[in-house]
Nucleic acid binder design. Structure first.
Lengths: 139, 139
DNA sequence: TATAATAGTTAGTTAGATAAAACTATTTAA
DNA sequence: TTAAATAGTTTTATCTAACTAACTATTATA
């Protein structure tokens, strides 16, 4: 099927595109962080209050790995850890203001990309793009 | 602008989507390779005859890094290296049949994703998707 | 022809992310 | 109430991917 082949191509292009986004991310204001760190920060932002174990499940890596990574972010004043009062084994994670600032800078990098996208797509295409990505990301 | 915010979201979703594609890639038949290796293999496939230096420019890493990575692929019988006759300093790279097989398996993983995409998008959306990705990837 | 530049290699090093295993503290369940 | 389970930490070790710097071989140039 011809369309199927075009879709294989599209997936490759998407991967390439993402690679470029990530490269952009690592130049400029956020270059002192690794992609992995930025991903941790993003997850803690989106799921405020998440625990080490939950992060470990989402990322599919061992708790020890997450523990080390999160404690680095805590040392860097990006994340804080609060011990749960109902179950003292748990610690809920959230961003500090420095962490929130990183999220903003991250979004700013995306906005620069978006400016370019808005230049080359017409309004109907922008709508389709948003709609289609929403659909696909639910797969 | 409201649409701008939605586009920021879309970019995040694309990144997440790509992360999932890559995870799929690392389970199943290709799990013995790293993402980096698969990327090298893909580049050598798309640009048959490419040299170490050219790869180094595309990937934006030092020649020594590429040299080591490529020689690993040669040792694993995935890539072969031919010394140029017109300039003996150059070696042109290409895939072996084992390398070609990896490309096929890589595409097979994508096809599974595509099957799912074709289930949730209607034909017009598939067309838009392909068209829009083509436009954006030229940015 | 002697010197520069280029392609690729090799040796040694470092940073980052991971895991296994043994550990503490706390909570749950038999 | 004792044993098992859970959350998180620490230590030790491994692997990948990257770097620098010094190297060989080859080609281009002054």
């Amino acid at each position: 099927m011809h369309r199927e082949l075009e879709l294989v191509e599209s997936i490759d292009k998407l991967t390439e595109l993402t690679r470029r986004f990530q490269k952009q991310l690592l130049t400029g204001d956020l270059k002192e962080y690794t992609l992995r760190q930025l991903y941790y920060i993003e997850l803690i932002h989106k799921k405020t209050g998440i625990s080490i174990s939950e992060l470990s499940k989402i990322l599919d890596v061992k708790k020890s790995t997450v523990s080390i990574a999160v404690n680095q972010l805590i040392d860097a004043d990006i994340v804080i850890k609060n011990q749960s009062k109902t179950d003292k084994r748990f610690y809920s994670l959230e961003l500090t203001s420095k962490g929130a600032d990183i999220i903003n800078k991250h979004m700013q990098v995306h906005r620069n990309t978006i400016r370019k996208i808005l230049e080359i797509l017409n309004p109907e295409e922008v709508d389709s793009f948003i709609k289609i990505i929403n659909k696909i990301s639910k797969v």
